[in-house]
Design a protein around this nucleic acid. Structure first.
Length: 524
DNA sequence: CTAGGGTTAG
C-alpha cells in the first residue's frame, strides 16, 4: 500500500515516493516531466500489472487527471478486482472536485459490484445526478448474479418508474431473477414487456426467457420460446436440454441432445454437465460412457465441474469404481467433488468407504466440508451400518468443530440413523429436543422405524400426527396400517382404510426402466 | 460500459 499520497505535486520536477508492495518495500524517484497526464507510460504500467505504480503516477499527476486517465485506471482496477486501488481513484475524483460523467460513474458501480461491495455500488447509483440504462442494468445484473432476486426486481421497477427504457441486457439479466413462488407471474409480465419492445427473438433474451419458463416447470412454454428463436447457439440449446433434465424429463433431454447434436450444435462443458445429469437420472451407464467419450475427445476433460458430473453419473449408475477412478485422477477438487463421491458411497450403503473418504478429506485439509458433506456422511453411516461413527461426527458438528452449521436435514439424518439402529425411543426423544420444528419427512422416518421395529406405542402417536400434517400422503396410511396389522389390531386397520378412501387418497403408480443393448425401455 | 445455460443434497 502507498504510504505517501500527496495530491499536489505537479509543480515539482522530481518526487520521491516510498511504498511497500506485498513482497518488498521500495522507494522510487519519479521524473514528472517524462509522464504527461494520460501518457502511454501510464497505460503500460497497468498492462504490466503495476497497478500500484500507476496509482503513484496518478497521485503525482494530481489535479491534472482527466477522463481518459480515470477510465484507464478504473478499467484496470476492475480487471484486477483491486478494490483498495479503485477506492483511491474514486477518492481522487472527490478530492480534486472532479465531477465524473455518467460513463465513469457506471464504471465505479461495476468496480464496486465486481469487488462484492454491492452497498457501495448501490450508493453510487442512488447518488448519481442522472442515470442511463447501462448504470441501472449493471446494478440489476449484480443483484441477479448473486441471487438477490427481490433487490434486482425492485430496482428494475424503479428503473421503469424513472422512465428509462430497458434494453436486451436488462431483460436478459432480470429474467434470471424471476424465480420462486411468484416467479412465473413476474416472468410473464416481463415477457409481455419484451414482446412490446421487440426483444423476444434476441438470442440472450430468448435463452434467459426459456430458462425462466423451464425453471418454473413450464417446459412447453420453454420449448415454444426455443422454437421461435431465429438462431440457436450453445447457450440456448443447453438451456432447453437442462430444462428437461432438471424437471426429470431425462429421456426427452437425452433425445433433444442427440437431435441438436446431429443438427450441428456445438457443446461445451455446461452442455455435457446437463446431459450427464439426465443420464444419472436414467442410470443409463452405456449412454453415460458415450458422453464420457465425447468429453475425453473434447478440449474439456479436465474441467472440474465436468468431472464432478461424471463422478455423480457413474455413482448413480452403480459404477463406483469408475467414479473413484475419476475422483482419484483429479488434480484439483472442489467440495462438490468430495460430496458427489461421498454421496455415491452413501447411496450404495458403503458406510465404511464414506467414513474412510471423510478421513482422507480431513487429512488433506484442502477443501472444507459443507452442509452437504455432513448430510452425505450421516446418511451413509445410517445406511451403511456405521451408526456410532455417524453420531460422533454429528456431535462434532453440533459442538462447532467442523465449521458447519447444523441444519434441520442433519437432525433428520440422525433420526433416521437412530431409527435404523433400532433405538426408536432415543430417536423420539431426539426429535423432541431438537432446535427445529420436526417436518413431515422426519416424522415419516421415525414412523418407518416404528414399523420395522414394531414399536406400536410411538408409531401410533407419530402416525396420527402425520395424518394431520399431510393427510394426502398415501404412504403414511399404508405404514400405519401395516403397523397395526403387525400388532393384530385389525379393527384399527379397517378404520384407517375407510378414512383413506373417504379422503380419496390415491397411490401413485410405480414407474421403472431398464437399459438393454444401449436402448432404454421404460415401464409404468 | 451492462446480458443468457451448469456440477453434489432435498
Amino acid at each position: 500500500m502507498l504510504r505517501k499520497f500527496n495530491w499536489f505535486f505537479p509543480y515539482t520536477k522530481h518526487v520521491v515516493v516510498s511504498f511497500s508492495s506485498i513482497n518488498k518495500p521500495c522507494t522510487r524517484q519519479i521524473s514528472l516531466s517524462s509522464f504527461p497526464p494520460n501518457s502511454p507510460y501510464l497505460k503500460s504500467l497497468f498492462h504490466n500489472g503495476h497497478l500500484k505504480e500507476a496509482l503513484l503516477e496518478m497521485a503525482v499527476q494530481g489535479p491534472e487527471m482527466r477522463f481518459e486517465g480515470y477510465d484507464t485506471l478504473l478499467n484496470e482496477c476492475i480487471n484486477q478486482r483491486a478494490i483498495r486501488e479503485g477506492q483511491r481513484v474514486h477518492t481522487h475524483m472527490i478530492k480534486t472536485c472532479y465531477l465524473p460523467p455518467v460513463y465513469l460513474r457506471t464504471r465505479l458501480i461495476v468496480l464496486y459490484c465486481k469487488c462484492e461491495c454491492l452497498g457501495d455500488a448501490r450508493q453510487m447509483l442512488d447518488e448519481m445526478p442522472e442515470r442511463n440504462v447501462v448504470s441501472w442494468t449493471a446494478m440489476i445484473s449484480a443483484y441477479s448474479q448473486r441471487g438477490y432476486a427481490s433487490e434486482a426486481l425492485n430496482l428494475f421497477v424503479q428503473m421503469l418508474r424513472s422512465g428509462t427504457e430497458p434494453n436486451e441486457f436488462t431483460f436478459a439479466t432480470v429474467l434470471t431473477s424471476c424465480i420462486g413462488s411468484n416467479g412465473l407471474n413476474l416472468g410473464r409480465q416481463v415477457h409481455s414487456f419484451i414482446i412490446k419492445t421487440s426483444f423476444e427473438s434476441h438470442i440472450y433474451v430468448g435463452s434467459s426467457l426459456l430458462d425462466m419458463y423451464a425453471k418454473a416447470g413450464r417446459i412447453h412454454e420453454a420449448q415454444g420460446v426455443f422454437e421461435s428463436l431465429p438462431e440457436r447457439d450453445v447457450v440456448s440449446c443447453t438451456a432447453i436440454i437442462s430444462g428437461y433434465a432438471q424437471l426429470g424429463h431425462d429421456e426427452e433431454a437425452l433425445e433433444l441432445f442427440r437431435r441438436l447434436q446431429m443438427e450441428g450444435m456445438s457443446s461445451n462443458y455446461v452442455t455435457y454437465a446437463s446431459v450427464l445429469t439426465a443420464l444419472s437420472g436414467l442410470s443409463a451407464l452405456d449412454h453415460g460412457k458415450q458422453v464420457h467419450n465425447h468429453v475425453l475427445r473434447s478440449e474439456l476433460p479436465s474441467y472440474v465441474v465436468l468431472q464432478n458430473s461424471l463422478i455423480d453419473m457413474y455413482s448413480k449408475c452403480g459404477s463406483l469404481n469408475y467414479s473413484r477412478r475419476i475422483f482419484d485422477g483429479m488434480p484439483e477438487r472442489t467440495v462438490i467433488s468430495w460430496n458427489a463421491m461421498l454421496m455415491g458411497y452413501s447411496k450404495h450403503g458403503m458406510g465404511r468407504e464414506v467414513v474412510e473418504l471423510f478421513e482422507l478429506m480431513r487429512e488433506e485439509n484442502k477443501v472444507k466440508p459443507d452442509s452437504v458433506t455432513i448430510l452425505a456422511i450421516l446418511s451413509g453411516c445410517s445406511h451403511g451400518g456405521m451408526e456410532e461413527r455417524g453420531l460422533e461426527i454429528f456431535f462434532e458438528m453440533e459442538n462447532g468443530k467442523l465449521g458447519v452449521e447444523p441444519v434441520i436435514e442433519h437432525y433428520g439424518c440422525v433420526v433416521d440413523l437412530l431409527g435404523r439402529a433400532g433405538q426408536v425411543e432415543e430417536a423420539f426423544k431426539f426429535i423432541k429436543k431438537m432446535p427445529f420444528e420436526p417436518t413431515a419427512a422426519i416424522w415419516g422416518s421415525l414412523l418407518g422405524a416404528c414399523r420395522v421395529h414394531s414399536n406400536v406405542d410411538i408409531g401410533e402417536f407419530v402416525g396420527r400426527r402425520l395424518l394431520e400434517i399431510e393427510p394426502e400422503n398415501a404412504g403414511n396410511y399404508v405404514i400405519l396400517s401395516n403397523l397395526y396389522a403387525s400388532a393384530g389390531r385389525w379393527e384399527d386397520v379397517r378404520t384407517l382404510r375407510e378414512l383413506m378412501s373417504k379422503k380419496a387418497v390415491i397411490k401413485e403408480p410405480g414407474r421403472s426402466w431398464i437399459e438393454l443393448d444401449q436402448i432404454l425401455h421404460t415401464f409404468c
